[in-house]
């Protein structure tokens, strides 16, 4: 039987020039439930699907405040995300303590990138198994930043990570001009909910239990809206007809990007043959 010789630890290259451990960590992100983020001229919003591990358990939190001016949505290992959140919160507190003003997103994500990069180069330990969508507002305006276990980070106009997130990205690419031009927070959140809705399976529908929304922007501190607070917007959005639901066999032209997307109807690829290349721009067309 085939055995991958190049994935025992993160310091070993494969002959193709790939680091398999990092690619596996990127896969962990796709196991997490979807998070969608987008921004307009003044605000940024994220929306996430919450999962419940059992009938007897509460929903897993997906959105976290980092400081008054920023927060994150996570997909992947929640426990890893907690470590990262603590780090981000401490960085923001330290910056405020010294300079009496909020830490710019570029600097915050830079320090996180430095921290995460170490885990992609050290024999002991493993990369973080979580992807983040960070939103925030600073001197440059609203931000949406995607952060991978590979320690790469991308500034985005709209982005989605997690299970079935390709559907949301399709929505975000198609409606880029529309949500960028939105004038109100409500309109922006509606788009986030629509994009998130596209990641749901046939038997699922948006509900206030299932969905968390967070917004940050000009004169609008980071705020998570759960339960009742998103109820009204959700009830509006679910009245709209659903986007074409993908059947098991996609009718769309299969693109390279689609292959990278986890599809619940398809068995996951065998571990040694992960089809993610580190430098492939998965999100082509959405980078600023």
């Amino acid at each position: 039987m085939f055995r991958n010789q190049y994935d025992n630890d993160v310091t070993v290259w494969s002959p193709q020039g790939r680091l398999h451990q990092i690619e596996y960590a990127m896969e962990a992100v796709k196991q997490g439930s979807a998070v969608v983020g987008m921004k307009n001229a003044t605000h940024a919003a994220i929306a996430a699907v919450k999962r419940v591990p059992s009938e007897l358990a509460s929903y897993q939190k997906k959105l976290f405040a980092i400081d008054e001016h920023c927060g994150v949505g996570i997909a992947g290992l929640t426990a890893d995300a907690r470590t990262i959140n603590n780090f981000l919160q401490t960085e923001c507190l330290n910056h405020r303590y010294a300079y009496s003003r909020p830490m710019p997103l570029s600097r915050l994500v830079g320090t996180l990138g430095n921290k995460m990069q170490v885990t992609t180069q050290e024999e002991s330990g493993r990369p973080y198994g979580v992807g983040l969508l960070m939103i925030g507002f600073d001197h440059k305006g609203p931000h949406l930043i995607q952060i991978d276990p590979s320690a790469n980070h991308y500034e985005c106009k709209g982005m989605s990570i997690g299970a079935r997130s390709q559907s949301a990205r399709t929505y975000l690419e198609k409606h880029l001009d529309t949500y960028q031009a939105t004038q109100t927070v409500e309109d922006l959140v509606r788009h986030a909910l629509r994009a998130l809705r596209d990641t749901l399976t046939n038997d699922q529908e948006l509900s206030s239990k299932l969905v968390s929304v967070a917004v940050v922007g000009k004169d609008h501190p980071f705020q998570v809206y759960d339960d009742q607070l998103v109820e009204d917007l959700i009830s509006e959005v679910i009245k709209e007809p659903r986007a074409t639901v993908r059947p098991a066999q996609s009718t769309f032209a299969v693109q390279a990007e689609d292959l990278m997307e986890e599809d619940t109807n398809r068995p996951p690829p065998p571990d040694p043959e992960v089809a993610v290349a580190l430098d492939v721009a998965v999100h082509r067309g959405t980078n600023p």
């Binding site: 405040a65 400081d67 919160q89 507190l93 405020r96 303590y97």
Partner: peptide, 13 residues
Amino acid sequence: IKNLEVRMKLFIH
């Protein structure tokens, strides 16, 4: 005050 603010924000988190 700075120390209090830090502790109060950690409480919120």
